[in-house]
């Protein structure tokens, strides 16, 4: 006997993602899902972002890593609440883990939660967390051809941060070629060129983000 099921396998995650969304909306909190490959500069980017918005937004950070808590310690040193999730080998965060992490935060006192996803350009794109904004970082050292290799991530993101622009002269990175490829995959994407090391371009990003959070 054949039984019709027609149930999506990501549905269970998406139901919890919607619950997260409702929970955050109830407290007026904006959530950012930050994705990138290992070493693209996610944690430095978070620190630069927190510094840029510290006078206007109250923030907390959820750190997703396979193991360890070095990232959450770096954030906590800045006086910002940080919750560490260790995925124990799993290569992406799921909505349920974020749901548990949100329990540790005083949402009524917050404007924004930054979620640092596990360093990976593949599966984090498939799992919604309940975020308002998907942000991905590409560092120039990784090369401008990455969108062709990881198209789903580049087509799903609302914002593309091109980081480590201070290194660009030491690489063959072609910014125009990157923009052309990404625009075809994702015409609505916002792009920011920044260097967390020198601070160049960070203000334009944090101003844009602040406005986005306030108007949400």
């Amino acid at each position: 006997m054949e039984i019709k099921v027609l149930e999506g396998i990501f549905d269970a995650n998406e139901i919890i993602a919607r619950e997260n969304r409702e929970l955050l909306d109830g407290s007026g909190v904006f959530m950012v899902n930050l994705m990138a490959s290992p070493g693209a500069g996610k944690t430095s980017f978070i620190l630069a972002t927190l510094d840029g918005v510290k006078d206007s937004l109250s923030c907390a950070v959820i750190e997703g890593d396979i193991a360890g808590k070095v990232d959450s310690e770096r954030i906590a040193e800045q006086g910002v609440a940080a919750v560490q999730i260790n995925t124990g080998g799993s290569c992406h965060l799921e909505a349920k883990q974020v749901n548990h992490a949100l329990e540790h935060l005083d949402l009524d006192r917050l404007d924004m939660v930054l979620v640092e996803n596990v360093g990976n350009l593949v599966c984090p794109a498939e799992f919604k967390l309940g975020e308002d904004l998907k942000v991905m970082i590409l560092s120039v050292a990784e090369g401008h051809d990455k969108p062709l290799k990881y198209p789903l991530m580049f087509s799903e993101s609302d914002v593309l941060i091109v980081n480590k622009t201070d290194l660009i002269e030491h690489t063959d990175f072609d910014m125009e070629a990157l923009k052309e490829t990404v625009r075809k995959m994702n015409p609505g994407v916002e792009m920011f060129e920044i260097s967390c090391r020198t601070g160049e371009g960070v203000e334009r990003w944090t101003d844009w983000l602040t406005e986005k959070v306030r108007s949400a």
Binding site: M1, I3, V5, I9
Partner: peptide
């Protein structure tokens, strides 16, 4: 998509 469309059972 990744979906369970149907199952065949005994």
């Amino acid at each position: 998509e990744f979906q369970v469309e149907s199952i065949e059972i005994n």
